[in-house]
Design a protein around this nucleic acid. Structure first.
Lengths: 155, 155
DNA sequence: TGAAATTAAATTGCACGCAATTTAATTGGG
DNA sequence: CCCAATTAAATTGCGTGCAATTTAATTTCA
């Protein structure tokens, strides 16, 4: 019996999707020990990034829906995640008075203060990774284009 | 009270990590409906890619450990995933006789046959995405470099 | 040789992601 | 005004990822 032929398009190492998947997990793996010192998981950290942005542009605070639109996550993921951030004391959740369906998100003092610890942590991560800032920016732009195309699909 | 300043390095849209995370999920989202027709999840599909490669190079079949080294996943993830592939009838798991610690993986006839359904599915996905093949290859290479650097870290 | 160290899987526990459904509130058309 | 349609969160259920631990087999070396 001769060995079956392999289409190179099906080799794992030729898959853009696998490179994306593996690289994404590798980056998150790099963040983990640093974020642990803040008590955050990586998705919680992303949520905090968005909340810090909103905090810098008062008076509006985001709803769960608005946060989900930024992070591309739904309430099935965000509701338990936000409850954990609330338990940690970083976030407050409150039903909107004018529309009881909406839950508005606000940072606590601890949540606001946490931001000051993040910049040095980020510097440490980039420094220890030895990555080139220009290459990172280039790659980020390419991924932005890819994401834009994927999100604009008919499906 | 004046609005807090925002370091651009902390804006969500400037994060390479978020672009990676979002793009990876977006690609997997694109695969989902197509893989559903095969009865596979995305990580299961990746495992099958590796098993098909091994199948084309007899006689050796991979262990759980070897599969994990290719996919960068540990037994905590792979053991239940492989049990599901076994339940689906695509994979056989067997303890090695010469070393009872090892579990060797082999494809069933159904598992081998499944490969023929994948190429057209992949073509459909790439076609409907409207992505440029050269740009995809370029991005894949860049991500490979990034992954290489991240995996070679001291941590 | 025989106890200690190492190794491979499996197990446990927790936090996502996400599809599908449910609940509750609001909106819109007749 | 009322009821159907829509909307926002929450809930449920399942399959990852991954750290930590456990179990069992093998290797090492005093």
């Amino acid at each position: 019996m001769n060995a079956p032929s392999i289409e190179p398009e099906l080799l794992l190492d030729n898959q853009l999707c696998f490179k994306l998947y593996a690289a994404s997990r590798a980056v998150i793996r790099g963040y983990r020990p640093l974020l642990e010192s803040l008590g955050l998981t990586y998705p919680q950290y992303l949520a905090m990034l968005v909340l810090w942005e909103w905090h810098a542009r008062p008076p509006e605070q985001p709803t769960v829906k608005a946060l989900g639109e930024r992070l591309l996550l739904d309430s099935g993921t965000l509701t338990p995640l936000l409850k954990r951030l609330e338990q940690l004391g970083f976030v407050r959740r409150r039903r909107a008075a004018h529309d009881e369906r909406e839950v508005h998100l606000a940072l606590t003092e601890e949540g606001i203060a946490l931001r000051d610890k993040v910049m040095p942590l980020r510097d440490e991560l980039i420094c220890s990774s030895g990555l080139d800032l220009n290459e990172m920016a280039e790659l980020r732009a390419r991924l932005g284009e890819l994401l834009g195309q994927l999100m604009g699909l008919p499906g």
